[in-house]
Simulated scan of single mutants.
Amino acid sequence: HADKLLALTESGFPYEVTGELGTVGPCTFGGRLTTAMTAHPKEDPVTGELLFFGYSAVAPHLTYHRLSAAGELVESRRIAVPAGTMMHDFAITENHVIWLDLPVVFDLRLAGGGMPMRWDDTYGARLGLMRRDGTGDVRWFDIDPCYIFHVANAHEDTTGRIVLEAVRYSRTAFDTMWQAMGGHVANPVADTGWVLGETQGGQVHRWLLDPATGTVSEQALDDRGVEMPTVNDNLTGRYSRYLYTVTEHAILKYDTVTGTATPYGTGHGTSPGEAVFVPAHDNGDDEDAGYLLSMVSHGTTHGSELLVLNAQDMTRTATVHMPHRVPAGVHGSWIPDPQR
C-alpha cells in the first residue's frame, strides 16, 4: 500500500519488507499507529483507502484505523465491545464497516499452554454495522452463535440491506479445528482430527442485515467444509458474483447467482492453499476473467507447486514446481512486480 510492502500478523505492528523480502522494520505510519494491525486489511477499490483494525485482550479491545491512499494514518477510532475477542477478520462495503463480535474470547489463564483464547457460550454473537463517514453509533445485530475466521465479501444491495458472505463455523466445527491447531477447548463437544472435507470445517453462509428494520437473516450457501474465501479484489466492498474457496483436495468456484460450485481437484494427499484471483489484462467487464494462484502442498516429502487456473472455466493453465516445500496454509497477497 502506498509503495510499502507490509508483512502482517494480528499480534503486533506490520513489518515493512523490501521487494527481495529483506526486513526494513516495524511500520507505525509516523508513530501514529499504537495498536496491533489486523492481517486482513481491506483496500477500497474506488477511494484507494486501506481500512484495518487492531484487537487486544486488554483495553482498548478494538480500534478502527484508516489509511489514506497516500499511506497516511488519518483516523483511529475506539469501538466499544464487552471484552477482547479473537476478531481475525472484518468486512467493508461502500459506506459501512462490519464487525464480527463473536464468542471466542481471551482467557489469559491459558497463556502458558498455547493460544489464550476459548469459546464462551455466555458471550453471544453479533455483527456490528458502522458507517464509514463517522456518523452514528455502531448498530449491533444478534446472530446465532458461530465463529468466522475469514470473510469473502460484503456489499449494499439495491434495497439498502447489507449482504455479508463468509465461512461460518459452528461450535462443534470450531472446537475440532481449534484442538487440531493446539488451542484449548473447555468442555469440548467434538473429537480431534479436523480436516477440510464434506462434513467438517466451516461452510459458506450469507447474512442479510436490514438497517431499516433492525433485523438480520442467515442462510447456508453450501454444506461442504471450506476455508480461505477470496473474490476479485477490484470488487472489495461491492457486489461480486463469484467467490473462491479451498476444500479437501480441491479448489471451488461458487456462482452465487446460480448457486453452483465448480471444483478443480488437486489430487489425493494434497492441500491446496488460498486461491488468489489475478485479473487478466483484457478482462473488461467480466468479473471472473483472470487467473487463480494457489500454492499446493504435497505433504512433507513431495514438495509444493504453484498452480495457475483459468478462473472462468477452472482449468489448469500452468504449474510451477517449487524448489522447496512451502508449509500448507500460508496465505496472503500476490504483488505485481514493478519492474515488469
Rank of each mutant, 00 (worst) to 15 (best):
A2P: 07
L5Q: 11
F13H: 14
E16H: 10
V17S: 10
G19T: 04
L21F: 15
V24P: 08
G25T: 11
F29R: 05
G30N: 10
G31D: 09
T34R: 14
T38P: 04
A39H: 06
H40Y: 05
L51C: 06
F52D: 06
L62C: 05
R66N: 07
E72P: 02
E72S: 11
L73A: 06
R77A: 07
I79L: 08
V81G: 01
G84W: 07
T93C: 04
E94W: 03
N95M: 00
F106K: 00
G112Y: 02
M115V: 06
T122V: 07
R131S: 14
D137Q: 14
R139I: 14
R139A: 13
Y147H: 14
I148S: 03
A154I: 05
E156N: 04
T159F: 02
R161V: 00
R171Y: 03
D175I: 00
T176L: 02
M177A: 08
W178K: 01
Q179E: 09
A186E: 15
D191M: 12
D191K: 14
T192S: 15
G201E: 06
V216Y: 04
Q219D: 12
D223P: 00
R224S: 07
E227N: 06
N232I: 04
T236P: 01
R241A: 01
T245H: 03
V246F: 03
A250G: 01
D255M: 06
T256L: 12
F277I: 03
P279Y: 11
D282Y: 09
D282C: 08
N283V: 03
D285L: 12
D286E: 14
E287D: 06
M295S: 12
S297H: 13
T301P: 01
H302Q: 13
S304E: 11
A311Q: 07
D313S: 10
T317E: 14
Q339R: 14
